[in-house]
């Protein structure tokens, strides 16, 4: 085992995220929203979902960005806006150490978001999970099936208006 250490401390810095955002903004202009520079989780939103895979690939491969690590992809329900969405936490692991979050939204009924499973393998199962829980489609996903619930489960459990089914294969579900 080697003793040397690389990298060192990489404190979360909103400035770093803002600088990274500027590079994306320069390239994609109106396809991304303004930067939300809050201290907890600085993020921007992709306004044109169809451009999301291009943005993702750009963010992963651009020499100044190198977001090579997707920490998390969470599905979110926005019942007030009639929208579903995903929140991706990206990080440049071991290279720059900067972090940023990206939001993509789609409509609540029949919403489609292009997949980024080809950009980060992490997204593959997370998108399946988001589909399982919220029901948005990920176009171009290699294997979009339910992952946690059974294949024949009814409804999407994490939607705010979810009602649990009475029985599953003859077994009573509620207490």
């Amino acid at each position: 085992m080697s003793d040397f250490e690389i990298g060192g401390a990489a404190p979360q810095s909103v400035q770093q995220a803002a600088a990274a955002y500027e590079v994306v903004r320069e390239m994609f202009g109106g396809a991304v929203s303004d930067f939300d520079a809050n201290e907890f989780m600085p993020f921007f939103e992709v306004l044109e979902p169809e451009k999301w895979p291009d943005i993702a690939l750009f963010m992963r491969d651009h020499p100044k960005l190198k977001f090579n690590y997707m920490a998390c992809l969470s599905g979110v329900d926005y019942p007030d806006d009639e929208k579903l969405g995903i929140v991706c936490n990206l990080e440049s692991l071991g290279i720059f150490g900067h972090r940023i979050a990206v939001k993509v939204k789609c409509s609540r009924e029949g919403g489609v978001i292009p997949t980024v499973a080809y950009v980060w393998h992490t997204a593959n199962w997370h998108e399946r999970e988001a589909y399982d829980m919220f029901g948005m489609q990920f176009s171009g996903h290699p294997d979009l099936r339910r992952i946690l619930c059974p294949e024949d489960w009814e409804g999407f459990p994490l939607r705010k208006d979810y009602k649990v089914q009475e029985s599953y294969h003859g077994i009573k579900v509620p207490y």
Partner: peptide, 24 residues
């Protein structure tokens, strides 16, 4: 890294990455 591995799995692949050190 592309798979999003972390912890002992990622360190097993030779990447010295530990949140206790890298995001203290």
């Amino acid at each position: 890294i592309n798979y999003g591995w972390s912890g002992p799995m990622l360190r097993g692949s030779g990447v010295q990455w530990d949140l206790r050190r890298n995001d203290p």
